[in-house]
């Protein structure tokens, strides 16, 4: 736990003589990184900059609000710089945090990147610094959800032989999950649809890709599911009913370990 973070990079409640600039960015990884880029090149001083996501924005009369245009190139600039100049582990941490759906994550990510460029990879272990504490929480949350969905995701076979899964995760974890399943099923064609974000991750013979906002009605997949699926579902139900020991019945524990939000498409 390093506690000697200098005030230049520890700005959140640092007294300022200039009005605070709030960069309002789009709720997407590219949007946040564009915001970081704009705030950085403004040379206004990190202590006076703040990054916020446009959703549910509450305005403060003393702050100056700047709209950030999402620019893919700016985002790539930042991420490649992080990857090459700090470390790959740091890049992974950044990637994980960008997947999070926490509404206040944008500014924490900004502070993480500043600290990373200032003191290098060891920024990850500055657990006494509040933004890093929050970053670690985000990371844990994303990891946990990813791990849960590795188990709770259910595939159904479509009539053309593709394996199709739907889910509605809190965090944007499509891209991490598809890597796991692409390694697991190298000979299958897989579609994983994030119903809430309207994203589809796919893998064909081990090669993966991601489609945002596809021009498909997700309900349409219901008609494509193969006839034999019902039989497997019944088999599985037989198994789960049969494996439970009635004398030990504990529905509360079941719900605690497998909350209802995971069961929408089970």
């Amino acid at each position: 736990m390093k506690t000697d973070i200098s005030p230049q990079i520890c700005p959140i409640d640092y007294p300022t003589d200039k009005p605070r600039h709030v960069y309002v960015c789009e709720n997407s990884p590219e949007g946040i990184l564009s915001g970081v880029y704009d705030a950085w090149v403004s040379r206004y001083g990190h202590s006076h900059n703040y990054i916020q996501i446009a959703d549910n924005l509450e305005c403060n009369i003393f702050y100056e609000y700047i709209n950030v245009e999402t620019d893919y190139d700016k985002a790539v600039n930042i991420s490649t710089a992080v990857k090459h100049k700090i470390s790959y582990n740091f890049y992974e941490l950044l990637y994980t945090c960008l997947q999070s759906s926490d509404p206040d994550r944008a500014d924490d990510i900004y502070r993480l990147i500043i600290l990373g460029f200032a003191i290098g990879d060891s920024a990850r272990s500055c657990l006494a610094y509040p933004p890093i504490q929050r970053i670690m929480k985000l990371q844990k949350n994303v990891w946990n959800e990813t791990h849960h969905y590795m188990g709770f995701l259910r595939f159904e076979e479509l009539s053309n032989g593709y394996m199709f899964a739907r889910f509605r995760p809190q965090n944007d974890i499509c891209s991490t999950l598809i890597l796991h399943f692409a390694d697991r099923f190298p000979e299958e064609n897989i579609l994983i649809a994030d119903v809430g974000r309207r994203k589809i991750a796919l893998s064909k013979h081990g090669k993966t890709g991601l489609v945002s906002n596809p021009d498909i009605d997700f309900e349409h997949f219901d008609y494509l599911i193969s006839y034999s699926e019902k039989m497997f579902r019944d088999l599985w139900k037989t198994f789960t009913d049969s494996i439970a020991i009635k004398e030990r019945s504990n529905i509360k524990l079941q719900q605690q370990l497998m909350p209802l939000r995971f069961r929408e498409f089970m």
């Binding site: 590795m150 709770f152 099923f185 190298p186 081990g206 789960t240 494996i243 020991i245 009635k246």
Partner: peptide, 25 residues
């Protein structure tokens, strides 16, 4: 996994469901 067949394994283990007695499946 290599390039063929099916399946891999993760050292942490993965729970795929929980039965009504609260034990993992």
């Amino acid at each position: 996994n290599g390039k063929s067949g099916m399946g891999n394994s993760i050292h942490a283990g993965i729970c795929h469901s929980f039965s009504s007695d609260g034990r993992c499946i």
